[in-house]
Design a binder for these strands. Sequence first.
DNA 1: AACACGTGTGGAAGCGTTTTCATTTTTTGG
DNA 2: CCAAAAAATGAAAACGCTTCCACACGTGTT
Lengths: 341, 341
Amino acid sequence: MAGIKDVADRAGLSIATVSRALSGKANVSAKSRKLAKTAAAELGFVPSYHASSLASGRNHNVGLVLPSVHRWYFSSVLEGVSATLLDAGYDLTLYNVGDQAARRQSVLNDFLLRKRLDAVIAVALVLTDDEIQRLLAIHRPIVGIGGALAGASTIRINDSGLSRMATNHLIQLGHTRIAHLTGDPALNQDFKLPGIRQAGFEAAMKNAGLPVRPEWQISADFTIQGAYTSARRLLGMGTERPTAVFAASDEMAIGTILAARDFGLRVPHDLSVIGMDGHELGEVFGLTTINQDARGQGALAARLLLETLDAGTPAGNDGSATDREYPTELVIRTSTAVPPA
Amino acid sequence: MAGIKDVADRAGLSIATVSRALSGKANVSAKSRKLAKTAAAELGFVPSYHASSLASGRNHNVGLVLPSVHRWYFSSVLEGVSATLLDAGYDLTLYNVGDQAARRQSVLNDFLLRKRLDAVIAVALVLTDDEIQRLLAIHRPIVGIGGALAGASTIRINDSGLSRMATNHLIQLGHTRIAHLTGDPALNQDFKLPGIRQAGFEAAMKNAGLPVRPEWQISADFTIQGAYTSARRLLGMGTERPTAVFAASDEMAIGTILAARDFGLRVPHDLSVIGMDGHELGEVFGLTTINQDARGQGALAARLLLETLDAGTPAGNDGSATDREYPTELVIRTSTAVPPA
DNA sequence: AACACGTGTGGAAGCGTTTTCATTTTTTGG
DNA sequence: CCAAAAAATGAAAACGCTTCCACACGTGTT
């Protein structure tokens, strides 16, 4: 494998000049630059990533920590991050930590801290103060998406406010018997989101003077199939049925619609369903939802980091932690309507 | 940040001994090892990834090249690979190349070749001979999953045979009017799979003496929503309808079932649907399918690579390219039945 | 008793770049 | 046309580890 020495020899230049020429630095004559580039191309020279990182301290590598890659939200964020980084010539190191505490520990300890990442994007990860301290201690920019990361920059949507908005949409249509399908708290302890969305739901109900029935607050694991099962239980209860369901994710909303169909309930005639996300599959079901462009959030996070890195701020997270709210929109389709007479 | 020198000083040992002790090498006395470990822990020492890689030539990093992270198959493979690597202390560098040729080129050139990966897993990627040559030239183990990679080890399922099996399942139930929903060839030129599955379908039909109607061979983009649209067109045709559909993926099978429901067709009474994959969502729809455990395939690929790497074979892909067929199983649920009288 | 051998250990030579610094060459302005 | 400033260049010092090599020290073998 050709090294930079070989290129220098072939181009008749010094190693230093070749290095400068190839990495696009200033103070290299046009002639030398061309010479170096030609020689490099002829030899098929590719700089060693590790040597370059070791010498320069730059890694061109961003870490992404995710709890899952299967759920729509996470794979969408991943896609946005991935595309942005790839275009910028950065590598993406993926840490799919799942819900296992052990794996998460090992990621934090052995991987993230190994000075091998220029920056970290953490999605929906609630860290302990100690963990955050450790992360901040390595003085790398950190961006949190959809999760509270005190001390780091975050990109979030207004979960509580949007939940109220979704609930209010149902209330304004005239619904009074509204159920809420929330995330499963037991499954994901690091994940405060279900609670926040649920609080927004309850606030909207209280505000409208409507009762919040405990038996209509059910949970699932954020998947279609999980929600389907939970929704069947809800709709199959012998007692009075809700006329509307607000599901904390589109996938769970879709599961609810499928369950409703099984019971012969027409959506929206017999049951209104509203979700939250902007899942592509929502169109097929005419799902009313709040669109949150997860892909865009991922792309934005990556762009922010790249800017910080390019600016060359040594300690990226020095007090400049910003918290931005990502824009969303209510998309009204055909899964919500006035309640049956 | 503490370096290995600091640890050595604190432990009263030489740098060399500390290095050996911490990386678990032989020829270190129990006492020294304990001394080194204690000192390292006290200082919070974490070895520099780049320095270590540069010196040792080992990266502890495997690249995964995927066309997408949204479709079930790919995110499942990703999950399997990710978990296995994480447990082994390896990093996973993700290249989500999508279907853009430019991005793919840049990945091959600028990323993969940068000597920064110990091995590469390529999923459903059909490469040109030249591209394969370049990959093999870097002398790193390569495993291909679900795609032909001449010269590299591969893990595949018997796509053609399984398509025949799926089709035969329908034929044996008594169906004669069978449609096939295949992948969209235009969308993914690097992707021979749709063609192979389609060939299997046609072979089974021919073998049974059944006609293959061109208007019943439709395509979609492997998503539920795409298949839904295509299936609506198929089922909405004024003419005679098929009594069964073999979809080249579970997601497309589900899209077909949804479309069928829209037309008031009962599955399986009016229309039998069989898919292929083993998607978790299949259970909700009672989908008959061929289970292929994509997650397991990813995990196996990662394990194979780790073994090769641990064995320390210098050039991992020296003729020992194996081609293994991953086991699958036909899962019969309730979406297939005898045709209507 | 002399020898070979295995085990621990530390010094120092890499690994392949980037970057500093001193030096040489070119450009600019008076 | 010359001095001073600016631009281009190369030698060499990092970067922070791993590992080769040489050496010291027991043990077991003739």
